[in-house]
Amino acid sequence: MTTFTQTLFNGLALGSVYALIALGFTLAYKASGAINFAHGSLLLLGGYLVAIWHEPLGFYLALAAAAAGTGAAAMLEALLLRKVRRTGSTVPTILTIGVDILLLTELARRIGGDVLTAGDPWGSRIREFAGITVAEARIYSLLVSVLLVAVFLAAFHRTRWGLAMRATAIDREAAELMGVRSDRLWMSAWALAGVLAAVAAVFLIAFPAPGLDRNTGHIALAAFPAAVLGGLGSVGGALLGSLVIGMAEAAAAGYQQQLSSFGSGIADIAPFVVMVLVLIARPQGLLGSKESNRV
């Protein structure tokens, strides 16, 4: 039973961080129709900025500055992508690979072999309840993620900005005719994706993780299947998908003894196995809408 509760919480905590990444990923996809391969590097950038600024600025100010910095970097990337907008979605996708190479090389060179800490206020404190042990940072990551996602959803569904976003996603031209400035929207979506990545980075490098190293950005790969199995471009889908992937990964790690007949290291591929199974049953993802064709 304890294993179950522990796995459940681990899955929730992991899923909530994935949600921040997958949400940013989905926003970027909605805005530019491209898979952002540089998302992991943006995440690494956010974590790196917090790590080098928390000493002079204090943690919260550093986080704010890092979020702004990562948002700005994401906007720069969006500017580049805008130049090749007319060529469909494949060219921008490859362009993000180029951006990723540049950003990752620079960050990896700066980080070197170091393990940097975020200087977060939770330290290595832990809480115990219901027979399970949980790092305090994980509880905050769950709370902050839920809060951020709730704020985002409210803005997406209740504000003019959200309305414009949804309208542009359905039909850019029509939305522009209605007075939506799609360029600005495009940029704001990317900036938001960058900010979310920076916040996710902080929780990824806080205890019980050891800190930020050059490989921290790899985690963004697990958010790809989260976004796709939920339904690419669906915000609710990204959230649901993140939860499913987080749970699957936690379960594969928590019950690895029982799963050993599938070979060792099954947790590594759990997200992808789940994704394939979901896509076979529902090719448009869990919450994605089936494309209808007008003739």
Binding site: T2, Q256, S264
Partner: peptide, 15 residues
């Protein structure tokens, strides 16, 4: 067993 990219050992320690 753990994978090369894991950074959080909570599940292993709990077990």
């Amino acid at each position: 067993t753990i994978k090369a990219t894991d950074t959080d050992m909570t599940a292993q320690v709990s077990a």
